[in-house]
Design a protein around this nucleic acid. Structure first.
Lengths: 230, 230
DNA sequence: CGCAGGTGTCACAAAAATGTCACAATACAA
DNA sequence: TTGTATTGTGACATTTTTGTGACACCTGCG
């Protein structure tokens, strides 16, 4: 399943499609974005494992996009590959300075791109293995889709598991109900924000053992936060 | 959230709107003013992090406005970007002489403007980065919505946290109750100004440890000020 | 088709935050 | 020093936000 989730950003649909197709043939999951604005939002909402950005784009250049992604601690860890039109040393340097992890010079062969992708993913340790998330005596295994506390399997619905996984990936940080809807529910939904409350409630109920529900803290007026230390 | 609070001053509503829209898309908070008179008042009252002024305006030109803003110590620190119609060297010089921090020649692309805004804000140290705010042994993390003194979490209400955050972003500067209502409460409210006193009181009470409450100083007849050094 | 679990929504209960007031304390000017 | 204006403080009613249980609606499955 999770060979890796990759966001491809290019203003030329043809190129975008070509890249996506070859990546999908290589076993990756992909998503397209036509410009920087959309890309920024998708990166935020969907937390891809890797982003491939074209250097030259209207509105927002790949390098500016890179800068923004790397500036936000919430997305800074996402590896980035830049596509440059020419092989200019200066571009490479500016790209790497902005925080890109690799760059590919256009035109390139699909095989070359997937090779780079594989390399970057391996390097950044985000490869296939979703290593287990742990907080104290609680362990969540995305692979097995299971959460254990003190080695006891905790039963909860899939949505609660997703929610918990998201929280464990971003501990100590407050998320508004809207952000959680975006990122756990998957964006383009219009759902009553109070629904989040209910799922928080269900999640808390599920992990009641040893007071673990106190890890899910509510921040009045702002949202919820996951705190590792109980 | 608080990517920065920007005042846009232009007598042409269309341009004003266009600028505001693109700034908002870039994550800034904006406010419009149609002429110099209004602008002057808003700058005074709301203490934006940056002001964008059109050069050519009826009543009061951008450069005159700049001069006035920079003359008043209460607003002198606010960075200013001027919009000039032509790329005339003389205009640039006059603008910078008056104290503007940057200038953009019309017509300009939204991207160019936001780039300048970003640059000016970064230069003046008021950037986007929600990095932690610190004053002595006190640290406020907007991400985590938490304030710590000597690594001890300080408990306070959300309004007090907002208030403290605002103060820490503008240290050593006096704010009237009205200004605080505008910026911390969010403007369009009609609330008794004395309410601010009560929240100041609550904030002080919250950070009493190690005399930190002395950082919030009252300036009789004017308002309150946050001083980094106790 | 009927069932079972998962989801979203609702109504009401509970809790926390907020704004206002009355009065005390303090600073400032005459 | 006295008087006046301004600010500090604690208490309280109101408003806002969140917790919680119940319920109806899907959706996949036997």
């Amino acid at each position: 399943m999770s060979g890796g989730f990759i966001l491809v950003v290019d203003d030329e649909p043809a190129i975008c499609d070509m890249i996506c197709t070859s990546l999908e043939m290589a076993g990756y999951q992909t998503r397209k974005a036509a410009n920087g604005q959309i890309a920024l939002q998708m990166i935020f909402n969907e937390q891809p494992d890797l982003a491939i950005l074209d250097w030259m784009m209207p509105m927002m250049s790949g390098i500016e996009l890179t800068t923004r992604i790397k500036r936000d601690p919430l997305t800074a860890e996402i590896p980035i590959i830049l596509l440059t039109a020419r092989s200019v040393e200066e571009d490479k340097i500016r790209g790497l300075e902005a925080g890109a992890d690799d760059y590919v010079v256009k035109p390139f062969s699909p095989r070359e791109l997937t090779a780079r992708v594989k390399a970057v993913l391996r390097r950044s340790g985000k490869g296939n293995e979703d290593s287990n998330l742990t907080a104290g005596t609680m362990v969540l295994s995305p692979d097995e889709q299971v959460c254990r506390i003190d080695n006891e399997t905790v039963s909860m619905g899939p949505k609660e598991l997703k929610l918990l996984e998201f929280f464990m990936r971003h501990p100590n940080r407050v998320f508004s109900r809207g952000q959680l809807l975006d990122r756990v529910w998957g964006g383009n939904v219009y759902i009553d924000e109070r629904t989040v409350d209910v799922h928080i409630r269900r999640l808390r109920k599920a992990i009641t053992m040893n007071d673990h529900e106190r890890m899910i803290q509510t921040v009045r007026g702002s949202g919820y936060r996951f705190s590792c230390d109980i």
